[in-house]
Nucleic acid binder design. Structure first.
Lengths: 272, 272
DNA sequence: ATCAGCACTTTCACTGAGTGGAAGAATCAT
DNA sequence: ATGATTCTTCCACTCAGTGAAAGTGCTGAT
C-alpha cells in the first residue's frame, strides 16, 4: 500500500513532534529512565538509537542531551559508542538520606546476621507498591536469587515485603490487595483474605515466615525495623534453602538483628 | 549608601541573567550538584533558597525545576519544605555498571576479610584525582573514620589511594604530583620524589602500608585488584588502630581478598 | 574494490518552551 | 500588629532548544 513515502508532503515519521508536550527536563529524565526501563532485564549499556527508542525521542535530540549528560557525569560513553549510567548518579544516589542513614546504621547488624546464619541477608523498605532492596549480603556459595541491591520485588511474595505490608497504613494494604496478585509458584498466597490473615499473624508474631513463594527451593524469615517514633521503616530478612524444620536459632537471629537496628535508630520498646 | 534600590532602572540583582549561558540541562544538574557541593560537609537537606544560592539560579527557576525533579523522583520534598536527594537517584545509581559489577563480585570477599580481621574494610576506585570509596564495611566498635561510601579521599594519604596511584598511567601520576599535596598529619608524605619512591615500593610488594597519614591513630594495609586484562581497577584495604608491629596475618588477609576478587573478575596471574 | 545499509554526528532556521522579575501568599519572629 | 523571610504564581518576551535533513563513518556483502 503505502509503498514509497511521499517526500513532498510531511514524511511519515514514527515521532509526532507536535504531540510531544514534554519539558526539557522530562526528556532528560526519559533518557535516564531508559536504562532502568524493563522490569527485570535492566540493560546496563545502550546504543544511542536504543536510548532514543526507549525514551521516545528523536535521535538528534537524544544525541544532544546524551552529550550533556556525559559532560555532567550522569552517563558514560564507552569506546564502542555505547552508553551506560555514570558514576555521578552513583555518587548522588548514595547521598540519598534513607539510603545513607539506614544503610550506615544497619550494615554492622546485617553483617552479624550474615555471620551467624551464613544465609542471604536482605534489607528492604516500602516504596510505592514494591519492596525496594537497599542492601543484600551473601557469601560465595549461597542460593541463586533474583533479589539485588536496587531491585523491586512484590510485597506479597517476599518475606520483607509481607512484613512491610503488615505494618503499612491500612489504605496501602487496601490498595495493594485491590489489584490481582501474581502467583509465582504454586504456594504463593494470592487470595486477598488469606493475605490479610497472614498480615495479622505477622503483626502478632513480629516475624514473617515464607516458603517457596517466590523462588523454588528457598524460604525466608523476616522481621520489622522501627525508628524512633515506633513506625516500621524497613525490614530485614534471611533467605535459606527450604527445609522442613523451623530453625528457632535463625528466627532469633533475625529478630535480634531487627531489634538491634531499631534500637540504633532510636527506638525504645514503646508502651506496650 | 545604596539605600533604596532604583526601581526605575535595572534593579541591583545578584544574578546576572544575561551572563548565564547555561543550558536547561546544566541548570538541572547544578541543582542536583548543590546537594553534593561542599567537599566534606555534605548537606543532606536544603531549603529552596539554599539550593538557588548554591546552584547560582534565580529563585523562580529553581522552584520550577525543583518541582520537576520532585515529580520525577530525583528530589524529595519533606513536610517542612526542605528538599533532599530522591530515591530515584539511588535506584539509578546502584545500576551504574562499575558500582554494580564490582560491588556484587567483591562483597563476599570483603565480608570474609572483615570477618577474619574485624577491621574497617574499604573498596575504592580511581576517579579523577581522588580515591572514590565504593564500599565500606565496619563493625559496631571500629575506629571513627572520615571515609564513607561515596566519599572522595586524596590519593597520597590513603592506603587505597596510594595503591591506585601506584598502578595508574604515568601521566596521571605526573599530573597528580604536579600539584601540591596536602599534609594532614605530621607523617603524611607530601614530597613528590618521596611519593614516587613509595609507589615503586608498592608495585614491588604488591601491597601498601600507611601509618598515621590521614587520621590520627589509624593505619592501613591496601592491595590492588586487577580485572581480566590485568589492569588495576580497584583497591581493597583494611584500616586498623596504629600498632608498632607489622601483623603478617593481616597483610596476608588483605592480599588474599584482593587476589580473590581479581580472580573473580577474570584475572589469571598473567605472564610473569 | 565498490556499494548498500546502518548508526551516529552536525547543521540551521524556526518558534514555543523556558525564563526571571515582580507581585502575591504564607510563615515565622518580634 | 508589624516586619522579615521564604515560598509560590504569573506572564510577556525572547533566545535556547528543536528535529528534519544532510553529512560522515563504519561494517560487511558481493
Amino acid at each position: 500500500m503505502s509503498g514509497k513515502p511521499e517526500r513532498t508532503s510531511r514524511p511519515e515519521s514514527a515521532f509526532d513532534a507536535a504531540a510531544d508536550r514534554r519539558s526539557v527536563a522530562a526528556r532528560l529524565f526519559a533518557i535516564l529512565d531508559a536504562f532502568a526501563a524493563p522490569a527485570g532485564a535492566t540493560s546496563l549499556t545502550l546504543t544511542l538509537t536504543a536510548i532514543a527508542q526507549r525514551a521516545g525521542l528523536p535521535l538528534s535530540t537524544t544525541h544532544r542531551m546524551a552529550a550533556e549528560l556525559v559532560g555532567w557525569g550522569g552517563l558514560t560513553k564507552h569506546d564502542n559508542g555505547q552508553y551506560s549510567l555514570g558514576m555521578k548518579l552513583w555518587e548522588l544516589g548514595v547521598q540519598t538520606p534513607t539510603a545513607r542513614n539506614l544503610r550506615t546504621i544497619a550494615l554492622p547488624y546485617l553483617e552479624d546476621l550474615y555471620e551467624t546464619t551464613r544465609e542471604h541477608v536482605h534489607l528492604a523498605i516500602l516504596d510505592g507498591r514494591d519492596a525496594l532492596y537497599l542492601e543484600k549480603l551473601s557469601g560465595h556459595h549461597a542460593v541463586r536469587l533474583i533479589s539485588r541491591v536496587g531491585a523491586r520485588l512484590p510485597l506479597h511474595s517476599t518475606g520483607v515485603g509481607l512484613v512491610l505490608l503488615a505494618y503499612a497504613p491500612s489504605e496501602v494494604v487496601q490498595q495493594y490487595l485491590a489489584t490481582s496478585l501474581e502467583r509465582f509458584l504454586p504456594r504463593t498466597v494470592t487470595e486477598p483474605e488469606a493475605v490479610r490473615r497472614r498480615l495479622a499473624e505477622i503483626r502478632q508474631l513480629g516475624l514473617a515466615r515464607m516458603s517457596e513463594e517466590m523462588t523454588a527451593g528457598s524460604s525466608s524469615i523476616a522481621a520489622p525495623i522501627r525508628d524512633r517514633t515506633g513506625q516500621v521503616v524497613a525490614a530485614v530478612s534471611i533467605v535459606t534453602r527450604t527445609t522442613e524444620l523451623v530453625d528457632a536459632g535463625q528466627e532469633r537471629a533475625v529478630r535480634e538483628a531487627a531489634q538491634g537496628i531499631s534500637r540504633a535508630l532510636g527506638y525504645r520498646r514503646a508502651q506496650q
